[in-house]
Simulated assay, not measured.
Amino acid sequence: MLNEMIQTIPQVLIDGLTLGAVYAVIALGYTMVYGILELINFAHGEIFMTGAFIGTAILIVLTGIGWVSAVPAIVMLITVLLLTAILTGLIGMGIERVAYRPLRKAPRLIPLITAIGISFLLQDIVRFIAELKKGNFIVTGPSLFTNQLSIKASSISSIFNDASIKTSFVIVLVTAVIMMIGLDFFVNRTKWGMAMRAVAQDRETASLMSINVNKVISITFFIGSALGGATGVLFAVQYGTIDPYIGFILGLKAFTAAVLGGIGNIRGAMLGGLLLGVMEMFASANLTLLTGGIFGAEYKDVFAFAILIIVLLFKPEGLLGKPQLEKV
């Protein structure tokens, strides 16, 4: 049994890192907003979904006017990523301004319920538009980067099986890593990043130090939503088919990844997302073997969440989170 599990490791790592990178970037949106407002923005998963639809729509339009044959695929993808990021960033700012800012001093349960309401609203708006334009809310976008690459893992060691990947895997992983590194640099090395950290630490004191708190919060929502929307494009490119409900389960798992890494900790969200993706793919490949056929690959979520519960039992603040000290 152990040998069979080891043989699948190369393919598990490839698929797990692809999915984990998606989880990680979405988790960044959750953890940024929570770090500053202590608000769980449950509409963030639907921002991701909206980005997937916006990006797919732009790709369909560009394909229709002949960009596929005239422009390299990577240039077209970069164009779509930038346009989608800007649009979803503006949507995130609008949601914060209309739905969250007026409730900033309300009990924490009220903004949470509002976030759930925004989530359902975005789902239905996207579904309505998709059905109006395509006649079906399940949409398949143009295929990009479909070439298959073979990794000869058996040449490294005879205990490994060979693995295969699509070119899109490399694109998704590299782009996601660039976005994560860019965000980490922005938060820790720039003036606006310093302002965001100051607001996260003490909003009232930051305002007394001439920091425009409302602008910082708006920028936080813009960046988090832009990253989420761009990740939606990467998801659509990698997996091909999207629907208005992909944001719910992926958003829930990304939130889980943020909690696993340490909610409010940016690097923790990255680590949590990658770990969750790898654990999920490991379970998908090996759960039948581990349980003697009792559980199949469809129970991979149970396995991943069981690991999460075990980690939080021993380290409730998450892998990279810090315990919250209460002053008395």
Rank of each mutant, 00 (worst) to 15 (best):
A198S: 13
N188R: 15
D184C: 01
T190L: 01
I171F: 08
R189I: 08
D184N: 09
F186N: 04
I171C: 08
F169V: 07
I181A: 11
F185T: 08
L173F: 15
V177S: 10
K191Q: 09
Q201K: 08
I178H: 05
R189S: 12
V170G: 03
V199K: 03
V187Y: 00
R189L: 07
G193L: 04
A176C: 15
M180P: 03
T175D: 02
I178M: 13
S168Y: 10
V170P: 00
G193S: 04
A195W: 01
M194K: 11
A195D: 04
T190G: 06
T167N: 13
Q201N: 14
V187M: 12
L183C: 07
G182F: 02
I178Y: 08
G193Q: 04
T167W: 03
V172P: 02
N188A: 14
Q201S: 14
M180G: 11
Q201Y: 08
K191N: 12
L183Q: 06
F185W: 11
V172C: 11
K191G: 07
K166W: 05
M179G: 07
V172W: 08
M179Y: 03
G193P: 00
S168T: 12
V177M: 15
L173H: 07
G193Y: 01
M194E: 11
V172K: 07
L183E: 03
K191S: 13
R197L: 12
G193H: 00
S168H: 11
M180I: 13
Q201M: 13
F186Y: 03
F185M: 12
T167I: 09
D184Y: 01
K166G: 13
V172I: 14
F186T: 05
M179K: 07
N188T: 15
W192A: 10
M179R: 06
R197E: 01
W192H: 11
D184V: 03
L183I: 02
T190I: 06
F169Q: 15
V174N: 14
M194G: 14
I178G: 03
V170D: 00
D184E: 02
F186I: 02
G193V: 01
R197M: 12
A195I: 05
I181N: 05
T175A: 11
I171Y: 05
V187E: 02
T167V: 11
I178C: 09
I181M: 10
